[in-house]
Nucleic acid binder design. Sequence first.
DNA 1: GATGAATGAGCTTTCATTCAT
DNA 2: TATGAATGAAAGCTCATTCAT
Lengths: 202, 202, 202, 202
Amino acid sequence: MTREQPRAIARRERILEAALAVFSRRGYRDAAMDEIAVEADTSKGGLYFHFPTKQALFLHLLDRMADLLMSRAEQAIAAEADPARQIDAALVVLRTFATHRALARLFLIDALSAGPEAHLKLMEVHQRFARLVARHLQAAIAAGAIAPLDTRLAGLAMFGAINEVVITWVLTGQPECLDDAYPELRAFLRRSVGLPEPSEAT
Amino acid sequence: MTREQPRAIARRERILEAALAVFSRRGYRDAAMDEIAVEADTSKGGLYFHFPTKQALFLHLLDRMADLLMSRAEQAIAAEADPARQIDAALVVLRTFATHRALARLFLIDALSAGPEAHLKLMEVHQRFARLVARHLQAAIAAGAIAPLDTRLAGLAMFGAINEVVITWVLTGQPECLDDAYPELRAFLRRSVGLPEPSEAT
Amino acid sequence: MTREQPRAIARRERILEAALAVFSRRGYRDAAMDEIAVEADTSKGGLYFHFPTKQALFLHLLDRMADLLMSRAEQAIAAEADPARQIDAALVVLRTFATHRALARLFLIDALSAGPEAHLKLMEVHQRFARLVARHLQAAIAAGAIAPLDTRLAGLAMFGAINEVVITWVLTGQPECLDDAYPELRAFLRRSVGLPEPSEAT
Amino acid sequence: MTREQPRAIARRERILEAALAVFSRRGYRDAAMDEIAVEADTSKGGLYFHFPTKQALFLHLLDRMADLLMSRAEQAIAAEADPARQIDAALVVLRTFATHRALARLFLIDALSAGPEAHLKLMEVHQRFARLVARHLQAAIAAGAIAPLDTRLAGLAMFGAINEVVITWVLTGQPECLDDAYPELRAFLRRSVGLPEPSEAT
DNA sequence: GATGAATGAGCTTTCATTCAT
DNA sequence: TATGAATGAAAGCTCATTCAT
């Protein structure tokens, strides 16, 4: 009875694209549903047919972005057999955001203007990443590559370190190119879990 | 000419207290100037006599909090002669927020709902801390306690790591007591700059 | 040509039932066509195929209810040969509503939220009842049971008296059981047309 | 601290006048706060400064009207020494509405579109009148002018009878002049409490 | 210095109705 | 006939800010 019509799926997609554009342009708070509707070439009612609230629309985008980043990180890690080097893969997040400053701003900063529900969702995202890192730290420990440590906290702290560098870049523009921070940040993260300095750069 | 009258100073102070209370209670966005006025036992006009905008009022509080935290951190560091241990002092921030969850939420999370100006101010605060840490890392390097490294980035990353742990605690309540994360976080931070595991706990 | 198909008739009936349920539950204004559609196990489009507007759907129910009440009243009156006692029969309306509070609320109160057209329809219903009463008052006058009077106005006023008692009960819950008001209301109505107090209760 | 400024009082009054005008013109539901604001020569914010919601504004008017009618009725009754004739005084309500059809429509019909709170308030008004009548019926009984009866119910029923006549007039325009119904309605009400037909008309 | 009153742009959301398929 | 999707016109309400007194 509730079969999705192709037209509806397409429209829904157009709405999400438009929402991403407008949220990026204006930030969560200053993004008006009116503008999203216009950008999606539909009506306000159409928006609300597909998404019950502005926040729900935003959270949907946040979910998507999280899934995208997670799968990228997992791919990067899967492509690397050496546990010690898998750590580097976590930095793929950095790389992704490096080329999408508006996106980074939206999901790392603006998400905190979107109310308590968004806070929780954002924390989920943070924890997904932290757990991903933690999982591979455990593998590295099991493989004897690094000494035992609290992987949960280490994952969180590593994510926080990366996050801070990205946020600083987003808000202050320093360093000019986010990639410039890559080598030192990588060294920092490796040290933080007791890995030796890598002899070769990426 | 316009010498500060004691009554005005007192009122200004009362407003700041009230604002802190209301902002903590409601968050930046949901804090109404009306409520602050009532809490400060004055009128809306009175508020605007002392502070030109809601944001200015908030930024003022943010400044104060930053100064307080900085001076606490500096005191803690000054009390410690051993460069290797001064690192620990940075964690005083953690300790301070550990007992003031509402404050932590306000200045670490809500500040990002307060508009671009607040973003910048918040970044300044982050960087003040990062620089403080960096300064002492340099001293540690000079003293030969740790190997050379990019102190600017390390300071930032360390701050980010601490920040993430605090934020997670604020928003998810884990760990139940923030102090529980202290030992492992300390170990993480020491490793991250190449310091050996401390033999004794705090 | 467009002979009514059994399926369509059944659906129409299901819609009316669903509408009655939802209108009763929510009141006219807060009843959403969506909810009626769901309750009728059909789609919004289906609703509008059978009824052109929300109001038309409501008016249809109002008509039905009026017919039902009228025929009940007429039956009750027909069963009573004594003109003087036929008056009592008008109170069958009271009895009917006494067991259907939600219905009473819907048709006596909510109908007034349904726009001018509903006002007129409701007035028609009132007048049908008033005329029914008037008709039997005329018979009673002709039979010499009561003295001549303006039967039109008396019918209206009697209906109004009954109506007020029902409405008060619906909205305030007093008296707890509507039937409790029956004897005194009956006495009031008999007096109002110059009938003597009945020696026996109903 | 919260002293009312004269200007504010005047504005509040202007708002109430404007609201009465717009509500009368459009009915409760279709009256827009925007229009009231314009009519009151103020801003929407101004409206909401003085009245928290549209409904509250309406209820305020309803209260006022009730007070006005009550005092008129009480004056009319006080001016009449004979208990048997005080009954007539209740009909002053009829007279008042007779010259203000829009008002009658607003408070007798539209009030039922204004939500449950308005229902309750309206019932209060009905009951105030019913009790006023009941009070004087009791006096009449005590004076031996009429036989004992349930004054509460009689008051309610009498009010309902009047109400129905007024409502019918408002919605159907019959009788052309509400006053035309006066003599017969008066006779109806006198009979209903066992008073003899008056020899002279009012 | 201080107050209460006033402003007004702007927001999200609702929902009866219509329409393409 | 029936369905899900789309429409779009309103509507009520908020609140930082300003102003007359």
